[in-house]
Design a protein around this nucleic acid. Structure first.
Length: 490
RNA sequence: GGUCUCGUGGCCGAGCGGUUAGGCAGAGGUCUGCAAAACCUUGUACAGCGGUUCGAAUCCGCUCGAGACCUCCA
C-alpha cells in the first residue's frame, strides 16, 4: 500500500511525512497505566488513540510491534523523589501484597480495554520485571559521568547534560526557566539541583518494593522504566513514542535525556501525544479527583451520570474528536455519540439488504479515497466519521428508493464499512450474542406473524397490545414497508 | 510567576486564507391505522477590537476568557 501518511511530531511541532526507520517494520512504544486504581475515562483516550494508530498502521501493511507498559513500581505518591511508591501505599492500606494490587488492577484494566475493543499490544512489559535492565542503564549513565550518587540514591545531572545537549527540546522548556521555577522549592533534598531527577531511589525501611543494586536496596526512578523497556524491545532508536500530553514534561523529556547519555541518541523519531479529556472544562485526572471510571460509565453508577453508556459509545465519543484536541465530557455529548453510533451501525445492517440498480448515483471510489485521506492526515478520525455519515445517507436513500447503487458499488461499500468502521475505527455492534438467539428469533417471528394477521384484519387493538407489551420488555417494534422489525433496547 | 495551548451556531466537534464539515437537539414536510424509524427541507457560528489581504473563523497585534505543564497524573 502506498504511504501518504502524515503525522504530527511533538518534537518538531509540525506535521511530518511518516517514514519508518526500517519499513515495513514499525516500533511503537506507548506509556501505559500505573495500576493502583480503576481506569477512568482519561485512560481510555490514549488507549483508543494508539489503538487507532496501531490498527491503521497495521492496515497499511506495516509490521507493527506495539509495546505498552504497565507501571507497577517506581511511581511516587507526592514528590517525585520524596514520596511513597503508589503501589506500595495502596497495598499497605488494603493489607495486600503489592503484587496482589498490581494483579487485581491489571486484570480490571485489561477487562476494560477488551470492552472498549482495544487490541492488545504486542508486548506489555512490567517495570518490576525489568529491574536489571534499568540498573544497567543507570550504570551506563553513571559511567558516562552524567549521574551522581547521594546516600544510595542516584540522580541525573540535568545541568551537565544541558551543556552538551538540549534539555527541554521536546517540551519547549528552557533550563533557565526551570532553574528560576525550582529555585524556591521548599525542603533541602539530596539533589544538586531541583530539576535533577532520580534514576534510582534508596528504599526507606517501610518501603516494601525494593531490589538490590550497586547503590542501595531500592527501586528505579519513574522515567527509567520506559527508556529501559523501550530500548529492550524496540531498540535504541525506534519509530513512535506515544503517551498523554501530561507526560511531555518531565517524563518524556527525561527519557530523551537518559537515552542520549546511555545510548547516544534520542529514543524515538516521532513523538505523538494525545490531549486530555475535560470535565466542566478541567482535565479529568486522579489528582483533581474529578474522574469517572470506565466501569462507572458502563453501569451508570456515578452522580454525574444521567444514564449508563456502553463501551462502544465511549469509544465512538473519543473517536469523534481529533486526538490532539481536548474533548469535553457531558451527558449530552455522550447521548449524541450514542445516537450517532446507533445510526452508523444500523446503516451498516441496512447495507446488506439494499437492492441493486443498474447504475449508481454516488462515487464510491472517490469516497474511499476521502476516507484514506482523512486518516493519512494525522489520523483525523472525526473527518473519517463525517465521510462515513455521508455514506449512511446514501444507504438510507437507496433503501427508500430515492437513489441508486450498482451491485458492485454496494459490495464496495460493504468492504469500505468493514475496513473503516470495524477494522480501523474498531467499532462493533453491541448485541449480546448468546445461545438463546435462535429461540428468541423464532419466538419473535411467531409473535410478529400473529401481529401481522391482526393488522391485516384491522384489529388495531391487538396489534398495539402486542407492541405495547413487548415494549415493556424493552423490545421495540417498528413497522416498515417491508414488514415489522424488532430490536432490544439498550 | 514562567512556558504553551485553546475560545466555532442550543450541545459535542472538524476546518486553519476563497468551496455545505459531521453528529445530537430544534422547526416544517413525506411516509404511516397510530407510533417509531428513515427520507426531504430548514440554522444570521466562528470571544472582542484593530491590522495585513482582492478576500480571514483561518495570518499579525492587542484585550478579555478558559485550560495544560512547571509536583504524581493518560
Amino acid at each position: 500500500m502506498e504511504n501518504n501518511l502524515i503525522l504530527y511530531n511533538t518534537l518538531s511541532r509540525k506535521k511530518e511525512i511518516f517514514t519508518p526507520l526500517k519499513a515495513p517494520f514499525v516500533g511503537m512504544y506507548v506509556c501505559g497505566p500505573t495500576v493502583y486504581g480503576d481506569a477512568h475515562l482519561g485512560h481510555a483516550r490514549p488507549a483508543i488513540t494508539f489503538d487507532l494508530i496501531y490498527r491503521y498502521l497495521t492496515h497499511l501493511d506495516y509490521k507493527v510491534r506495539y509495546v505498552r507498559n504497565i507501571t507497577d513500581v517506581g511511581h511516587l505518591e507526592a514528590d517525585a523523589d520524596e514520596g511513597e511508591d503508589k503501589i506500595a501505599k495502596k497495598a499497605r492500606l488494603e493489607q495486600l501484597e503489592p503484587m496482589e494490587v498490581v494483579q487485581y488492577y491489571s486484570d480490571r484494566y485489561h477487562e476494560n480495554m477488551s470492552q472498549l475493543n482495544v487490541k492488545k499490544p504486542s508486548i506489555e512489559p512490567r517495570a518490576s520485571g525489568h529491574i536489571i535492565e534499568q540498573i544497567e542503564m543507570v550504570k551506563k549513565i553513571m559511567d558516562e559521568g552524567y549521574a551522581y550518587e547521594v546516600n544510595g540514591s542516584v540522580y541525573f545531572d540535568v545541568f551537565k547534560y544541558n551543556q552538551s545537549h538540549e534539555y527541554g527540546k521536546l517540551s519547549g522548556r528552557v533550563l533557565e526557566d526551570l532553574i528560576s521555577n525550582t529555585r524556591d522549592l521548599e525542603g533541602q533534598t539530596e539533589k544538586k539541583n531541583g530539576y535533577d531527577f532520580a534514576l534510582w531511589k534508596k528504599a526507606m525501611p517501610e518501603h516494601i518494593m525494593r531490589w538490590p543494586s550497586p547503590w542501595s536496596d531500592g527501586f528505579p526512578g519513574w522515567h527509567m522504566e520506559c527508556s529501559a523497556m523501550g530500548c529492550k524491545y524496540l531498540g535504541e532508536y525506534f519509530d513512535i513514542h506515544g503517551g498523554g500530553m501530561d507526560l511531555l514534561f518531565p517524563h518524556h523529556e527525561s527519557e530523551i535525556a537518559q537515552s542520549n547519555i546511555a545510548n547516544g541518541g534520542d529514543p524515538a523519531k516521532y513523538w505523538v501525544h494525545n490531549n486530555m479529556i475535560t470535565i466542566n472544562g478541567k482535565k479529568m485526572g486522579k489528582s483533581l479527583n474529578n474522574f469517572i471510571t470506565l466501569n462507572e460509565f458502563f453501569n451508570g453508577e456515578h452522580k454525574s451520570l444521567e444514564q449508563a453508556f456502553s463501551p462502544m459509545t465511549i469509544r465512538f465519543f473519543i473517536l469523534q474528536a481529533h486526538y490532539r484536541s481536548t474533548l469535553d465530557f457531558s451527558n449530552e455529548a455522550l447521548v449524541a455519540a450514542e445516537k450517532g453510533l446507533d445510526k452508523l451501525l444500523k446503516a451498516s445492517e441496512t447495507l446488506h439488504q439494499l437492492k441493486a440498480s443498474d447504475q449508481s448515483d454516488f462515487n464510491v471510489v472517490e469516497m474511499k479515497l476521502n476516507c484514506y485521506r482523512a486518516l493519512d492526515d494525522d489520523f483525523n478520525s472525526p473527518i473519517l466519521i463525517a465521510h462515513l455519515f455521508e455514506v449512511v445517507k446514501w444507504i438510507n436513500q437507496v433503501k427508500h428508493e430515492k437513489a441508486k447503487l450498482k451491485k458492485e458499488d454496494i459490495e464496495a461499500l460493504k468492504i469500505l464499512f468493514n475496513i473503516f468502521v470495524f477494522q480501523i475505527l474498531g467499532l462493533k455492534p453491541e448485541k449480546q450474542s448468546n445461545d438463546d438467539h435462535e429461540i428468541v428469533d423464532g419466538l419473535m417471528n411467531t409473535i410478529l406473524d400473529i401481529r401481522k394477521d391482526a393488522k391485516d384484519n384491522k384489529n388495531w387493538g391487538l396489534a398495539d397490545k402486542i407492541r405495547d407489551e413487548l415494549g415493556k420488555l424493552k423490545i421495540d417494534i417498528k413497522d416498515t414497508k417491508e414488514g415489522a422489525s424488532w430490536e432490544i433496547k439498550e
